[in-house]
C-alpha cells in the first residue's frame, strides 16, 4: 500500500494589504514542497503575491453540531454592530 503524503491547507494573499485567504488543499511531503505545489496549483493564473501553507492536521475546526451554542447567542445582539452611528461623507473605507 502506497504511503500518502500529508494534506496541507493553502492560503493565498491576492495582493499586498489584503488578508491571506484559504483557497484549497494539496498533498506534499514537506513544507517546501507544499509551497512549490501551491505555487503551481493556485498561483499559475497570477492569483497571488504570498503563500502560507499549514499542515491540515494542525487546524482545529469548530464542530457544526456546536453551531447553536457557539453562534446563536450573537445573532440577536445587533447593538454590537456599529450601525447606529452616522458616518460623515468624508470618511471613506468604512
Amino acid at each position: 500500500m502506497k504511503k500518502e503524503w500529508p494534506l496541507w491547507e493553502i492560503f493565498i494573499r491576492s495582493k499586498s494589504g489584503l488578508n491571506h485567504k484559504h483557497v484549497g488543499s494539496l498533498h506534499a511531503a514537506d513544507a517546501e514542497m507544499a509551497l512549490e505545489n501551491a505555487r503551481d496549483l493556485y498561483t499559475r493564473r497570477n492569483e497571488g503575491v504570498s503563500i502560507w501553507v499549514v499542515e491540515s492536521k494542525h487546524i482545529t475546526a469548530s464542530d457544526p453540531d456546536d453551531s447553536d451554542p457557539l453562534f446563536e447567542p450573537a445573532r440577536d445582539k445587533v447593538y454590537r454592530h456599529p450601525t447606529f452611528y452616522t458616518v460623515p461623507d468624508e470618511v471613506s473605507h468604512m
Binding site: H27, M33, E36, N37, D40, L41, R44
Partner: peptide
C-alpha cells in the same frame, strides 16, 4: 507520481 507533480512538471 503525484497529481501535484504532474502540474509542476507540465508548468
Amino acid at each position: 507520481p503525484e497529481m501535484e507533480l504532474d502540474m509542476a512538471l507540465t508548468n
